[in-house]
Deep mutational scan, measured.
Amino acid sequence: WKVTVKGVEYTFDNPEEAKKFAEELAKKKGGQIHYKDGEFQVH
């Protein structure tokens, strides 16, 4: 499971962890999460 933040990729074994990480980042940066092709992208 991948989380991509401004072109930087983070990989997680667990989808729950990936989702949590993406949500935290989106909150911090005031961005939005897009889920696409099996990965979370924070913009």
Rank of each mutant, 00 (worst) to 15 (best):
G31P: 04
E24L: 12
K36I: 13
Y35E: 07
K2N: 02
K29W: 15
P15H: 15
V8M: 13
K27C: 14
E39T: 09
L25D: 02
E39K: 07
K6M: 14
G30Y: 06
V5Y: 15
Y10V: 02
E24Q: 10
T11V: 13
F40W: 15
E16V: 11
L25S: 05
G30C: 13
H43K: 09
E17G: 06
I33Y: 06
K36Y: 10
E23V: 11
V42R: 02
H34P: 02
T4E: 02
Y10D: 00
I33D: 04
K6Q: 14
Y35H: 05
V3I: 04
K20R: 12
E23F: 10
E9Y: 09
A22R: 03
A22H: 01
K29H: 15
E17L: 09
K29P: 08
Q41K: 08
K20E: 09
K20V: 08
G38L: 06
D13C: 13
G31T: 06
F40L: 06
K20A: 12
V5N: 08
P15V: 14
E9L: 10
G38V: 03
F12T: 00
A26P: 01
T11P: 06
G31H: 07
F21T: 01
E17K: 08
T11Q: 10
V3A: 01
Q32H: 15
V8D: 07
D37Q: 05
N14Q: 05
K29V: 15
A22I: 06
V3P: 01
F21G: 00
A22E: 02
Y35S: 04
Y10I: 03
P15K: 15
G7Q: 04
H34N: 08
V42A: 03
E17V: 08
E16P: 01
P15W: 15
N14Y: 06
K6F: 14
V42M: 04
E16R: 10
D37C: 13
A26V: 15
D37A: 04
A26H: 03
G7A: 03
D37I: 02
G30I: 02
V5I: 13
E16M: 12
H34S: 13
Q32A: 09
I33G: 03
F12P: 00
E39H: 11
T11E: 08
A22C: 12
A22Q: 02
K29L: 15
A18H: 01
P15F: 15
E17C: 10
Q32G: 05
Y35P: 02
E9K: 07
K2L: 08
A18V: 01
F21V: 02
T4W: 09
F12H: 00
D13N: 11
Q41H: 13
G7K: 02
F21M: 03
A18T: 00
G30T: 03
K27D: 10
I33F: 06
L25Q: 09
E23W: 09
E39F: 05
K2I: 09
A26M: 06
K19T: 05
G7R: 02
F12Q: 00
V5E: 12
V8P: 00
Q41E: 10
V8F: 13
E24D: 11
G31Y: 13
Y35M: 07
W1R: 02
V5D: 13
V42E: 03
K28N: 11
I33H: 02
T4G: 01
K20G: 06
D37G: 04
K6R: 11
E17Q: 10
P15G: 09
Y10E: 00
T4I: 13
K19C: 15
Y10A: 00
A18Y: 04
K6G: 14
K28H: 10
A18K: 00
E17S: 11
G7F: 05
E16L: 12
E39L: 05
H34D: 08
E24G: 07
K6D: 15
Y35G: 04
V3Q: 00
T4Y: 08
F12R: 00
G7V: 01
V42W: 07
K27F: 13
K2Y: 05
A18F: 05
K2P: 01
Y10G: 00
E24F: 13
K19N: 04
K2F: 06
F21W: 07
E39C: 09
K29F: 15
T4D: 01
K20Y: 08
Q41W: 09
A18W: 04
K36A: 12
T11S: 11
P15R: 15
G30A: 05
A18Q: 01
E23I: 12
E17W: 04
V5M: 15
V8K: 12
A18G: 01
V8A: 12
Q41S: 10
L25P: 01
G7Y: 03
T4H: 05
I33Q: 02
K29I: 15
G38S: 06
E39Y: 06
H34A: 10
H43N: 10
D37E: 08
K27G: 10
E23N: 06
V5G: 05
W1I: 05
G7D: 09
A18D: 00
T11K: 13
E23K: 08
Q41F: 11
G30L: 05
Q32T: 14
A26F: 04
E23A: 07
E39R: 06
E16G: 09
A22M: 05
V8W: 11
K2E: 01
K28L: 14
I33T: 04
Q41G: 04
Y35T: 04
A26C: 13
K20S: 10
D37L: 02
E24H: 10
W1G: 01
D13G: 09
Q41L: 10
Q32P: 04
H34G: 06
F40C: 09
G7L: 03
I33R: 01
F40D: 03
F12S: 00
A18C: 05
T4N: 06
N14K: 08
E17M: 08
T11M: 14
N14R: 08
V3F: 03
E16S: 10
L25H: 06
A26D: 02
E9C: 15
H34K: 10
E23M: 11
G38D: 05
E17R: 06
K28G: 08
V5W: 15
V5T: 08
G30N: 09
H43R: 10
G7P: 01
E39V: 13
L25A: 07
F40S: 02
E16A: 11
V8Y: 12
F12L: 01
V42I: 13
D13P: 09
D37F: 02
L25K: 03
D13Q: 09
E24V: 08
V8R: 12
V8T: 09
G31L: 11
V8I: 12
N14H: 07
F21C: 11
V42L: 07
G31K: 02
G38K: 12
W1Y: 09
F40G: 03
T4A: 03
Q41R: 08
E23C: 15
E17N: 07
K20T: 09
V42K: 02
F21D: 00
F40N: 02
F40I: 09
E24M: 12
K28I: 13
A26G: 02
W1M: 03
Y10S: 00
H43D: 10
G38M: 07
E23H: 08
E39M: 08
P15Y: 15
E24Y: 14
K20L: 11
G31F: 13
G38F: 12
G31A: 09
N14D: 09
V8L: 11
E17Y: 05
Q32I: 13
K6L: 13
G31Q: 05
Q32C: 15
V5A: 12
K28M: 12
P15S: 09
K28F: 11
V3W: 01
H34Y: 14
T11I: 14
A22F: 04
V42P: 04
V3H: 00
V8G: 06
E39S: 07
E9V: 14
L25Y: 13
D37S: 03
I33P: 03
Y10Q: 01
K36C: 13
D37H: 04
W1C: 08
K36P: 04
Y10P: 00
G7E: 05
K36W: 09
E16K: 10
Y10F: 10
G31M: 13
H43P: 04
F12W: 01
E9P: 04
F21N: 00
K20Q: 11
E9A: 12
L25I: 13
F12K: 00
Y35K: 03
Y35I: 08
K28P: 05
F12M: 00
G31N: 05
E16N: 10
G7H: 04
K29G: 14
K19Y: 14
K6C: 15
T11G: 05
Y10W: 13
D13K: 09
G31R: 02
E9Q: 12
G38I: 03
E9F: 09
W1L: 03
V3G: 01
K28A: 11
Q41T: 12
D37W: 02
K27E: 11
K29D: 15
K29C: 15
A22W: 02
E17H: 07
K6A: 14
E39W: 07
K6P: 07
K28Q: 12
Y35W: 08
K27I: 11
H34E: 11
Q41Y: 09
I33E: 04
H34I: 15
T4V: 13
Q41D: 05
T11N: 11
G38E: 05
G30H: 07
K28E: 13
E17T: 10
T4C: 13
F12A: 00
V5R: 03
V42S: 03
K19Q: 11
Y10M: 02
Y10H: 03
A22P: 00
N14M: 04
